[in-house]
Amino acid sequence: MTEKEWPLFEVFIRPRSGLEHKHVGSLHAVDARMAIEHARDVYTRRQEGVSIWVVRSSEVTASDPSDADVLFEPARDKVYRHPTFYAIPDEVKNL
């Protein structure tokens, strides 16, 4: 096969206004415009969205799973960042 493979795009859909765009999958297209047209057909056949973002997959930088501890472990023992850490007597209102 001598044809050059079309680049891969990641697709993000906003389900309705007021909500954020969410990653839904990926597809191949020659350029961003075609990627949006394809995303319309592949990912919104049942009114799943009101807006589409596409980005070339090669432009995404991802964290390495083996760095997960280094990145995320430090937050684990900081329960004081959550409101439930603080004991407030029941009679105190509006806190």
Partner: peptide, 13 residues
């Protein structure tokens, strides 16, 4: 559906 754009495997591999 996350992509081989992210294809480089983790360092441990």
């Amino acid at each position: 559906m996350y992509t081989q754009g992210l294809d480089s495997l983790g360092k441990e591999a």
